[in-house]
């Protein structure tokens, strides 16, 4: 049987950041924080810096190469036709197309990479620890190890409410 998680619900991000600092100094592992908005402080203090920008750069590099190859194939190799006296391989005119395609493909690629990494496919049902984390509350989740004692659990709960958690409970 899965042990229930300790859930702390907070009103604002400053309290969450302070709670993270305290818990980390006591070597208690925080599984995740669900926040209504992206907060750099929380991400950084949790040690969960996103690597999605690298994915975007990869997608962008792929987009540049792919678009360039495609235009090169169409207008130089497969169907070389002269437009307005320009050479077939007229790179300046392609830059605009490559630029716009890079934006589009980077965006699509980033979304795909994000969904693959977080396993959030289309049509997936939301796993909400607390419905208010979609509105204005911060939810901190601490997974219990199997060998955790009741005293330690009480300790963690006390720490959370000391830092201003408006609700602390156990939940799956």
């Amino acid at each position: 049987m899965k042990t229930p998680n300790i859930i702390g619900i907070f009103d604002n991000d400053d309290q969450v950041v302070e709670a993270i600092h305290t818990l980390k100094s006591k070597n208690i592992k925080i599984a995740d924080v669900h926040a209504p908005f992206a907060s750099h402080h929380i991400l950084k203090d949790l040690g969960k810096e996103s690597r999605i920008p690298y994915g975007s750069v990869l997608a962008g590099a792929f987009a540049i190469v792919a678009t360039f190859s495609f235009i090169y194939w169409t207008s130089v190799i497969n169907y070389p036709i002269v437009f307005g006296g320009k050479p077939n391989f007229s790179f300046p005119a392609w830059v605009v197309v490559i630029y716009l395609m890079t934006i589009l493909l980077t965006f699509i690629g980033t979304v795909i990479i994000f969904q693959m990494r977080t396993k959030m496919n289309f049509g997936k049902k939301a796993e909400l620890m607390h419905i208010d984390s979609t509105e204005d509350k911060f939810v901190m989740i601490i997974e219990q190890d199997a060998d955790i004692t009741e005293k330690e659990v009480q300790n963690i709960k006390k720490m959370l409410s000391d830092h201003g958690a408006i609700e602390v409970r156990m939940d799956n």
Binding site: G84, G85, P92, A93, V95, V96
Partner: peptide, 12 residues
């Protein structure tokens, strides 16, 4: 820079 160059290159 590119906008300046492209327009002049294209209009010729």
């Amino acid at each position: 820079w590119f906008v300046q160059y492209l327009i002049i290159w294209y209009a010729n």
